[in-house]
Structure formats: C-alpha cells, structure tokens
Design a protein around this nucleic acid. Structure first.
Lengths: 210, 210
DNA sequence: CTAAAAATCAGTATAAATACGGATGCTATT
DNA sequence: AATAGCATCCGTATTTATACTGATTTTTAG
C-alpha cells in the first residue's frame, strides 16, 4: 500500500513545520515538500509527479491560494487541493468551492478531522464539514438584499441587456422607444453605482439580480 | 408552548395529503393549509400571519418554487421555506440556497429527517444535509471547464473590462494601443460566442471566468 | 524546424452607449 | 392635497464599441 503524497503550502513557517510534525504520526501520509507560496508549489509539482494532495493556505505572497486553485483546475492532473485557512467567512469558502477545492478546513481544526479529511479526499471525494457548508450557504443567500432597489421594468430591461440585446432590440420588444430603454439603463447604472454596462452586468450577477 | 404553523405547497395531491397525515403525529407541528401552487400559497399567507414554515415543491404550475422563494425573500416576513424536491441536481440545490431556502430535502427523505429539519429550521437555523451540500459544491466547482479557451492576455483584458474600464483605460494600463485591446475584446467575444460586452460578462461569470 | 496560436498594431465605417440637459402622466404614501 | 418615485419620452453631443479586412512579430506546440 502506497502512502498519500502531499505538499504543504503555507507562508507561516511555524504552521508549516508544525503540520509536518503532526502528520509524521500517520504511516499512510508522506509529506513530500513544504513550500511558502504558489510559485514554489508549482516548482515542486514539476519535480514530483505523484502528488495526491496539496494542503493550501489562502493568504500567501506572490501567488496566493485562489490563484493556485485556479491554475490546478485548469491543468490536467489529479492533485486534490485541501484549503486550510484561518478565515471562516462564507465568501472565502464559496470561492474555494467554486475553484475546485476538495475541502476547506479552519486552522483550528483538530488533527483527527485533518487526517480524516485527507483520507476522504485521497479517495477522490470532496468533504466539507457541515458548519463550513452552512457558512457558505448563508453567504450565498445573503448575496442579494438588493432586489428591491430596481423597479420591475428596470429588472426586465437589465435581464434583456444581460442577454446581449441592444437598446434598439429591447425597445422593440417592450414596445417603447429606444430613449426609454437608454434612460432605464442609465438609471440602473446610477443605482448600482457602476461606470458602464460591463461593470453593471458583473455587479448584477454578484448581487444575484440576474 | 405554541405549535409550529406550516403550509404545504405541492401540486401533487397525494403527496400533499400524505405529508399532512404524516405530520399529524407530531404535536408540535400544525399544518395550517395545503395549497397546490405559489399563488394559492400567498393567498393563504395573507390570511394567516403566524406561519413559520412553508414546505415547498419546486415544480408547480402558475408560480413555481423558485418564484416563491424569490418573492418571500424580497418581502419582509420571517417565513422560512423548506424545499422538498425530487430533483437532486446540484443546480437546483444551489439556486434554492441562493434564493433563501432554509433547507433542501429530497422526496425520499424519511420522516425522522423531515421532522428534525422542521424543528431545526423553526429555530431559525438553516440545515442542509451533508449529501445535499456535497452535490451543490460539486455543481459549483464543475461550472468552469473552459478557462483554457482564453489566453492569459485575454483573461487579463476581460478582467479589466468587467471592472468597468474602457478600452482606452485598459490600453493605457497595459502599455499597448487601443487597437490591441479592441482586437482582444473582439476575439474574446468570438471565442465565447456572444454578441456584445454585456452578454460576454454574463457568460464569463457563469462559466467562472471572472 | 515548421505550423499554429498569441500578441501586437492599423484603416474605415457604422452602430451603440454615455453624459448632459429637460418633460409628463401615473401611483402610492403621507 | 402634496410629495416622491416610477415609467415614459425627447434633443444634442461625445465617447465607445463593433464590424470588416489586413498585417507583423513572438511564442508555443508538434
């Protein structure tokens, strides 16, 4: 039976080394390398082709955890990242889940949970603790408090804009003049405090409007 | 001690009535009404001002579950919706979570889980079973397979576009001519098969590019 | 090494969006 | 009855974005 090869990426040396010591107790886990940022991580991944898991901190210099997740997701390998972070905010958790993290642990997790998570993830399964999943869900649902700031017409117009229709096309569809649609768009842009349509669509999706 | 007042909204009569019978066993739960779509639900909510929970099906005629969630979220009340659905696809679950569902149960859930969920939700806490949360997380992370279709420069430009910068501003920031940025944007639009910047930003967020 | 992308720049023309103005009728709330 | 917000409309001018065609250099991949 071969051990689980993993790399620890964290910019705090004490934490990194502590984790390493801690994992020495487990025969089925082999810490291949300790690195302090994303760049070093990818150098190590070049050298070692049999890495199963990366324990990943979010806040690191040069290349941070989010960037690492993204790069891992877009290269074909079967390295499974486990995020270990001190932030328990929902937006961090949701971003990590979105970017392919196999788990999200807080730094105050006990070692039983850690080794349990490593083993589950090594089996190819994602594992998010209930309280972590809960924070993420709360964050997602709180994203939109703002639906009321737009009128129904404005929401309708916004939806059509986001579908790629031009002002003229929207006007025709809603049986009003182009001027009206332009005014609507201008008002929406003002209400959401953005500069132009591009930023508008981005913000609108962020706050769950479309 | 006052009972938990709830309404069941589901377009299948047998299921609705079955659920009702089932909940009669529990003294702390009081089924106030049974309705078969969202419109009826809101009529009942007008009549009864002390409803704590709505058991909500997704697929219903006239006004479906998503619309109900949305309307509930945007009106101020403390009705806590629990979605009971036969769909276990991640996108359904994620949408419900996003729109303020307090829980998401499958129709094959056993009654112990149901009553447990009702009691937890009545206490104001959201509760998503681990296997449900897992499906949602998987869905979220699978959203993007496509990052590779854009070059790094294109991603960089796309990011700046989404932040509301104009072509000229982006050109200045990246030390190239406006033409270059225009070409980049045109290429990005072509690659993602969209009509204009608005639709581009929408699609880019959908597939997790920004 | 060679072919294919990627990144850079250009001309010309049209379409669309944004920034300023300003106006009216309607509805809901106070 | 009055105020405020909404939806509707209009003019003018400027800025941006899009469409089409075309090109060079560098980088990447086979």
């Amino acid at each position: 039976m071969k051990p689980i090869n993993l790399i620890i990426a964290d910019d705090h040396e004490l934490f990194r080394n502590g984790l390493n010591e801690l994992l020495k107790k487990y025969d089925d886990v082999h810490v291949v390398a300790l690195v302090e940022d994303g760049n070093e991580l990818f150098k190590e991944l070049e050298k070692h082709k049999d890495i199963a898991i990366v324990l990943l901190d979010i806040t690191m210099p040069n290349m941070d955890g989010f960037q690492v997740l993204n790069k891992l997701k877009n290269s074909d390998n079967n390295i499974k990242p486990i995020v270990i972070s001190m932030h328990d905010e929902g937006n961090y958790i949701a971003s990590c889940a979105k970017n392919g993290a196999y788990s999200y642990l807080l730094k105050n997790t006990d070692q039983d949970e850690l080794i349990k998570t490593i083993r589950i993830v090594n089996g190819g399964k994602k594992y998010f603790q209930p309280q972590i999943a809960e924070k993420m869900i709360n964050y997602m649902s709180e994203q939109s408090v703002s639906e009321n700031i737009l009128s129904n017409k404005e929401k309708e117009v916004l939806d059509l804009i986001s579908k790629g229709l031009t002002t003229k096309e929207i006007a025709k569809r809603l049986f009003v003049s182009s001027r009206t649609i332009e005014t609507h768009r201008a008002n929406i842009i003002k209400k959401l405090e953005v500069k132009n349509t591009a930023e508008l669509i981005k913000k609108a999706t962020e706050i769950n409007l479309i």
